[in-house]
Design a protein around this nucleic acid. Structure first.
Lengths: 343, 343
DNA sequence: CGTTAGCACTCTAGTGCGTTGAGTGCTAAA
DNA sequence: TTTAGCACTCAACGCACTAGAGTGCTAACG
């Protein structure tokens, strides 16, 4: 569709614009060593590229900037997936060689590293509890009529919730039920817990326990808590303010506001990371209009071949795609390896 | 020190400036119904107040704005602690009448409400684990050589940490130790746990257990996790962007950057909330220069008379002191009541 | 026929300047 | 002691002008 020369010029423009954030003129392209054409020739090609929709002009007498379509073409066909600097590479490897830590801490820490390395905002979706199984369940009475329910999953994640105990239920009764639960349900996947609760041990409980109905409600409530599982970690949110395109308070505010809306962000991350490998959403390809001038690059990490979490980088559409994709690729694979080791 | 009329004029200026964020002129004060003097008279008083350091002038031909000293005087002597609107009051009460929830959820939710009601940023320090006691300890093996340690406190807070198990230690050995620990240490205040571990059950363990040294290290590591206890909750960080004094990206960036530095913020909150009651830190009274144009108002909440956490509101120095102080006062007392009920 | 030099044209960003208006300080009168 | 009046100050605004970067078009060149 594009000639070799057009591809070369488009690449040059995108690269330049990513670096400078200023419209790129024909003369500055011509002056680069790697393009052997005069400004006039380049002007002609640029006019063509604009007609094809790959470039835009802020106003008549300015240089060109890439359009969303231009970025998309760049990402799909042109971006040089240059490797990281060796010391950066080592840094990431060292991170996982570090001493063992709680899984969510690792994810959170990975987010910090990502945002520091890239100077963009990192958005990480913690490992989904969904695909892990029950390791241990516990119900600890606290006061007169409250108890804390604790669920530990096979990956060592701990979820807890305070529940209220109906009057009349004795401690020994509760213990009996909890024991039964641990005997019967350990190893059951979290997402099957509730149905297993009703189908497998419902009858047995009914036989042995006095306040069946009430206790069932308590368990129901307790297990509910464990299911909203996935956690969202943000890091480097203020990096957005460094970008020249977000010098405008109002633009930046709509983005930062969205950062506080965890559920919306979660949905975006989940919908962005369909399929395997690295996904790039450029500008308006994101569902939310606050991200119209942003690009979101995501990758998933997996346990036993099944994707359980997502890591992502959010930056301006004028983003260092090649670098970020390289980093995300490595980190997602390392996270996957790390999780398998733990499993 | 100040005449009655000066106090009245100072009050009027601070009130006006809080509302409008624009320098206040003599004429606009004079036009208010409650001040019966001409602009000229007020001008004279304003000149005096400026000389005394209560007011400042951005430039010669502008109105006056309160200085830090002016705000301080206003907060200490002039602010009308008007009550909240009845519906706001009800809203806050209703919040605590709500169904029982995990304690940290309550604190976090309180932060959300605070920031919404005030349109400022709320900073809450979660209940200190320090002053609670051990309710239950557990060590669950996960894989070959890892385990998750769980500590439940008397208030129902759950802390967990992944630890590595030295090779050679058997599951039954671990169980023995955990049982011993629960028997001997339940009810011991968290901050005494480590010393109690060594003094009270050190010898007994040594007698019964083979890998004493290694297990001691594991427990040490596990209990370490529980001690960094206090958690920081932020809400409404982007409200800062609404304030006209923070239209400047660079100013706002230094503030938002500080929001990401949890340890620094924690220290500030702790140092700000010495003593009981409500504390107000105006402008440069805050230790950090990013907050030079901000005021931080804090209050503590308590369990059994002992302060265990802090709630705070951060806004521009031009802050609705009266309103915010009123809200914080009510909320901190309600939180205290709520915690006692739980205890 | 593709490429390039030259040139007129366009448009933004920056600069300088006069005007406006809010607000002050001072003086003199009430 | 208070107030009216007046000259003065200074930021903000609008306007015209300029400089400069970049374009599109045409014609010449190899």
């Amino acid at each position: 569709m594009l000639t070799e020369r057009q591809r070369m010029i488009l690449t040059a423009i995108v690269d330049d614009y990513i670096r400078s954030a200023e419209p790129v003129g024909s003369r500055s392209i011509s002056k680069r060593g790697d393009v052997g054409y005069s400004p006039a020739t380049i002007r002609n090609e640029m006019a063509d590229l604009e007609e094809l929709g790959f470039l835009e002009q802020p106003h008549t007498s300015a240089g060109r900037i890439p359009s969303h379509k231009g970025y998309r073409y760049y990402v799909d066909h042109l971006a040089p997936f240059n490797l990281l600097a060796p010391n950066e590479f080592k840094m990431m490897k060292a991170f996982f060689a570090d001493k063992l830590n709680a899984i969510e801490q690792v994810v959170q820490h990975a987010g910090t590293i990502l945002s520091h390395m890239t100077n963009y905002t990192s958005i990480l979706l913690g490992p989904e509890v969904f695909h892990t199984s029950l390791r241990h369940f516990q119900l600890l009475p606290l006061g007169e009529n409250t108890a804390v329910a604790i669920i530990v999953t096979s990956t060592g994640q701990v979820e807890n919730k305070t529940v209220s105990i109906p009057p009349g239920v004795s401690v020994s009764e509760m213990e009996k039920v909890v024991n039964l639960l641990n005997r019967k349900l350990t190893g059951v996947p979290i997402y099957k817990l509730k149905s297993a609760l009703y189908n497998e041990i419902g009858q047995e409980m009914q036989r042995h326990v006095e306040h069946f109905e009430e206790l069932m409600n308590v368990l129901d409530e307790a297990l509910d808590g464990g299911q909203d599982g996935q956690r969202l970690f943000l890091s480097g949110t203020t990096n957005m303010l460094n970008q020249p395109e977000f010098r405008d308070i109002d633009k930046v505010k709509s983005i930062l506001d969205l950062f506080e809306e965890t559920p919306t962000l979660m949905k975006m991350m989940i919908s962005a990371s369909t399929g395997t490998g690295i996904q790039v959403r450029i500008g308006t390809e994101n569902d939310h209009e606050a991200f119209a001038n942003c690009s979101l690059i995501t990758a998933t990490y997996a346990i036993e071949g099944e994707a359980v979490g997502t890591i992502g980088i959010l930056g301006p559409t004028r983003m260092e795609y090649a670098r970020v994709i390289g980093i995300l690729d490595i980190l997602s694979k390392d996270l996957t390896k790390f999780l398998s080791r733990l499993h």
